[in-house]
Design a binder for these strands. Sequence first.
DNA 1: CGGCTGACTCTGG
DNA 2: TCCAGAGCCAGCC
Length: 107
Amino acid sequence: MNDTPPLPLYQRIYAIVRQIPAGKVATYGQIAKIVGGCTPRMVGYAMSATPTGSDIPWQRVINAQGKVSPHGDGFGTEMQRALLMEEGIAFDSQERVDFDRFGWLPD
DNA sequence: CGGCTGACTCTGG
DNA sequence: TCCAGAGCCAGCC
């Protein structure tokens, strides 16, 4: 159904991330799979292009390891973890998120 | 128009 | 369970 839309790939990725409800988290691979035709890297790169303050909950996007990806120096990573906690996401001693509880399941 | 950069994932040991 | 290396594509200057 999602055939190649006239919108840029990044725009498409942003649309998917935006569909993530609060209190849930999705992986780059999951997003890439939903978008289709793009690799997990593209999703991560697209996120990097997303400025903080946008309507895009990039914070709810984490890696397949269930952990937040190490951004530049790691400062943004801490903020992301804090934001997820505000959403209601819980981290274990390994700073990992349980997809079984917070994993976003697209309709 | 050409080249560089970048928030990942997978497999093997 | 942790560490390492390789593959991939689009956007931007």
